[in-house]
């Protein structure tokens, strides 16, 4: 229950806007971090905090691509293969990533660690090929760097010490304000 676990953060977020509804996207970011994806439970919880019908949260979840309705891997790898990146071989890079991970785009590895997605422009066109992993940028990539990244993430997951996600950092900020 994010309601209990993040009571302070939620209070802080609500205080930023004159209407509760405005807090929908921030709370959904928080809920998704907690639950891994926007499960029905997560939607219902956010809705109840904001006094909204859960249908509204479902609507938002479906509209915005950063909310996942289905479970995803621990690491979501989002490769930009939009035009500017594609001119620099992003499509081939995505194909390579897919082969290395042994999954198709939009699939998750059997160990539940990685989900691969291709996405629209991530504002890093000058550093293609690139990807975001849980919203952190990894730029100027090639096959070797990709393999190193995957190895590092595997090790990190095995050690159980995941770097704090950016959302977590934001939430920490909310706590202080």
């Amino acid at each position: 229950m994010i309601q209990d676990k993040y009571a302070e953060e939620i209070k802080g977020i609500l205080a930023r806007y004159p209407t509760k509804k405005s807090a929908a996207l921030p709370l959904m970011h928080l809920a998704q971090r907690e639950y891994g994806h926007m499960s029905r439970e997560a939607m219902q919880e956010v809705a109840s905090i904001l006094d909204l019908d859960p249908t509204h949260i479902l609507s938002l979840t479906g509209f915005y691509t950063l909310y996942y309705e289905e479970p995803v891997g621990k690491y979501v790898l989002e490769v930009c293969n939009d035009l500017a990146c594609a001119l620099k071989g992003a499509d081939e890079f995505a194909a390579m990533a897919s082969e290395k991970l042994g999954i198709d785009v939009d699939e998750t590895t059997a160990d539940g660690l990685f989900t691969l997605k291709t996405v629209m422009c991530l504002a890093a066109c000058d550093r293609a090929p690139m990807l975001q992993c849980n919203l952190a940028f990894h730029e100027h990539l090639d096959e070797a760097k990709f393999e190193a990244l995957i190895a590092k993430l595997r090790a990190e997951a095995a050690s159980g010490k995941m770097a704090p996600s950016v959302v977590e950092k934001i939430a920490a900020y909310a706590k202080q304000s």
């Binding site: 939607m43 019908d53 859960p54 249908t55 509204h56 479902l58 609507s59 479906g62 509209f63």
Partner: peptide
């Protein structure tokens, strides 16, 4: 005053849905 249906997804994939 019962906003219990809404659009799900976006673009050509918009569809009416409810979670109530």
């Amino acid at each position: 005053g019962d906003p219990v249906i809404g659009f799900h997804n976006r673009g050509r994939h918009l569809e009416i849905a409810t979670l109530s």
